[in-house]
Structures are given as structure tokens and as C-alpha cells.
Design a protein around this nucleic acid. Structure first.
Lengths: 209, 209
DNA sequence: ATTACTTTGTAACTTTTGATACATTAGCTA
DNA sequence: TAGCTAATGTATCAAAAGTTACAAAGTAAT
């Protein structure tokens, strides 16, 4: 585990901190589609993402969800931190977008290190700041853009996260993430195809450049 | 100034910290309508709100804005902290909702205290967490609610912030805050009035309960 | 009071999005 | 290959929101 930490976080954390992390935390593998955190869960460990990608979703009161953002290697989930520190239930759902690995850190250690390691403090703050930025981005999308633009952005994000121009998903899945209906997505995808931006295949979408 | 700090923050910060704050920071009065921070500003001081209320807005690329949330006595602006720490331009605009007072703290002090005072650390984290929650709330509004509900929530928030059932504003102002058009707001307000939720007057709205 | 300006009301129309219903097609399995 | 299911295409209609245009009512200034 120390090896993994060194390669992923070696340039951020000092050796002492990495030793401490390795000592108290657990490594967990996950598989695409795993629900890592669900709405309402009590969080007692803070996850550090080592490998893979996770998507963070917000739930509607009555059935429905919305993709907030993706997190990648080197990120952590600030929303989760928020819950840890506030001792409240999770406000979000985290679903594995790809296979990957996380390191789980007990909350009390996380707080201890805040006073002890400047690098840890910086990392935690940077995470918060990044998450705030992604939330702002989500708000921009919702408030200022039409569904066709939101869809295009979604496809681009998804392509980046998966390091591929081929997006392997169904219209229905996209509709869930964007909190709209399948028909709307099909309609807009067809329009994007006609506009020469993408090519549609069964259960996959090809991003053209 | 120490007096003010004691009454507003005395139950959060230890005396030593309050002394330090009083030593290095500036007190600033503001008037309703003042633009305290504008989009693109470089932030070098972190504001602590002592009195009054401030509204935080997000700007659209091409003309237009959206109210994100209000902050009140005892709050600070996490978005601003984000900017301070990241040394980047402000992503938001802060406009005085009422008259009030803020204390401005130099950024480098803010960082120094993070290592030194646990109460400061807790405060800063709580602020981040609150702001994340408000952002989530903004997202819920945008993603899951129709304009009529958003409008009603807006009126309720505004009433709370101003401690009055009389909301002194114009339809156009509301339209700016909710990023829609005046006609839409007039239409929905009229519907709310017909539904017995509010009473409309010139340049003011009365919330009925 | 007359004028000018701000604020609100309302009608008519368009665009965007959502909902329902059903047809078609690809891929899988027996 | 026949049949099933998941995924997609498409038409039609309805609701929500945005746009334009103009009238009416209140306020302030001269």
C-alpha cells in the first residue's frame, strides 16, 4: 500500500504523513457500478482515490438524480469530508464510474493531521476548493445552458474521464445523470449526430473532433 | 473593534485569537447595494461578516447572473477563501443586501492561524461545509424545481434575511436574481397572489402565512 | 397639473422540455 | 432461426419558460 501512496501522493505529502496514512487506513478495490456511498449513509472514513473514477450524484426528493461531477485519481470527496466533520448523513451518492482503488482514512486521523501536517492541510483545502469549483460548474450548466449544451459537456467530461472517444453508455443512463427523460436525450443526440459532432452506435457514442 | 468581535465571535474563538484578529484586520462598513467583491477581482483579504447580510451571485458568460445564496452575521465567504488560497480571481460577485459591517483579514494570517488555532480551523471548515450545503441547495432548486417554487423559496429566504414579511424589491430585481425575465416573474407572482400566498404592492411584496 | 419615468399587467406567440405511445432494430438465447 | 429483450427512433401532444409588444398605473420632477 505504501508503494501506491508514494506513487500517487508522494509529490504532495511528506514521507512521515505517508507512513501514518499507510498505518491506519484500508485499501479498497471497487468495480464499475459499485455504490460506494449512498444518500443518507453515515460516513466514518474519508476516501482518497488512488485509481479509477467516481461519479457524484445528488438525489431528488421524489425519485430522480443528477450528476454533480466526476472525481479522479488524486482527488477526494469534499462532500464526504463535509459529512465526516459535520457528523451528518451523506448528501450525495458516489458510484464507481470505472474500476479502481481507494484508501479509506478514519475521520479522527484526518482531523489530527490537519493540525500536524501543512501538506495535509493544503491538500484538504485544495480539495474543498476544487469541489466548490465543480459545484459552480454544475450550477453554470443548470442555470445558463440548454439541455443540448449540457449533453455535449457531459459527453466531453465522460470521454475525458474514461480516456476514450468512445462513450459506452445508453441513452437512458445519460437521461438519469442529466435528470431528464430518455426521449429527450435520444432527440438531442440525433441532432448532435446530424450536426456532425458525434456518431451514434448501439449502446455507445463516438465523439468526433 | 475588539468589542464587536467579542460579541459576534466570542463564543467561537478563544481570546488569544480574537486579540490577533483585532490587531491585524480592518473594519469596514457597507451600505445596501454596495458591490463588495466583483467577478474577476483578486482577493487579498478574507471577510468576516459582523452585521448585515450579503448576497452572493454567479455571473453568466454573456450578461446575466444568478443568486447563489445569502450570508449573514457570523458567516464568511468560502468562495472568497477559495480564491484567496488558490490565488485566483473571484468566481462570484458579492453585493450588500442590507447595511452592515465586515472585518477584513489578510490572507497570510488566515493561513497562519489554521495551524495555530483549532477553533479557527473548525470555523473555516464549518464555513466551507455550510457553503457546500448552500451550493447543493442552489443545485436542488435549479435541477428539481420549477420557477414558481424557486420564486417562493426566494421570497421566503429574502424575508428571513431581512427579518420582515415585507419584501422591498421590484419584479425586475427578482428576475435578475433568478436569472429569468421580468414578465415570467410578474406572471408567477400574480399566480401566487391569486393562490393567497402573497399580496402584491408597488415595489414590495407581502408574504402571507 | 403636466410630463417623464418606473413599475406592473397582460396578450399572443415561440422555443424548450417533458410525457406518452408505439414502431423498429440489434443482439442474445433457446 | 425464432423469439425475446434492450436500446433506439419518431410522432404527437402538453406544460413551462422565454420573447415581444404594448397598455395601464403609480411616482417624481418641473
Amino acid at each position: 500500500m505504501k508503494e501506491l501512496l508514494k506513487t500517487t501522493y508522494g509529490f504532495i505529502f511528506e514521507d512521515n504523513l505517508i507512513d501514518e496514512i499507510a498505518e491506519v487506513s484500508l485499501l479498497r478495490d471497487f468495480t464499475e457500478g459499485d455504490v460506494l456511498i449512498d444518500f443518507g449513509d453515515y460516513i466514518k472514513k474519508m476516501p482518497l482515490l488512488i485509481e479509477g473514477a467516481i461519479k457524484i450524484l445528488r438525489e431528488d426528493f421524489d425519485e430522480g438524480e443528477l450528476l454533480l461531477y466526476f472525481i479522479e485519481k488524486g482527488d477526494t470527496c469534499a462532500m464526504t469530508m463535509a459529512c465526516c466533520m459535520g457528523e451528518t448523513k451523506s448528501e450525495i451518492r458516489a458510484v464507481a464510474e470505472t474500476n479502481g482503488k481507494v484508501i479509506m482514512i478514519p475521520v479522527h486521523k484526518m482531523e489530527e493531521w490537519l493540525g500536524k501536517y501543512k501538506s495535509w492541510r493544503n491538500y484538504v483545502f485544495n480539495s474543498y476548493n476544487n469541489r466548490l469549483k465543480e459545484m459552480l460548474n454544475a450550477i453554470d450548466n443548470l442555470a445558463f445552458m440548454n439541455m443540448d449544451e449540457r449533453l455535449m459537456n457531459y459527453l466531453i467530461d465522460k470521454s475525458k474521464i474514461n480516456h476514450s472517444k468512445e462513450i459506452h453508455t445508453t441513452h437512458q443512463e445519460i437521461a438519469y445523470d442529466l435528470h431528464t427523460s430518455r426521449v429527450v436525450i435520444s432527440r438531442l443526440l440525433k441532432a448532435l449526430e446530424n450536426g456532425g459532432k458525434i456518431r451514434l452506435h448501439r449502446a455507445s457514442i463516438e465523439l468526433l473532433k
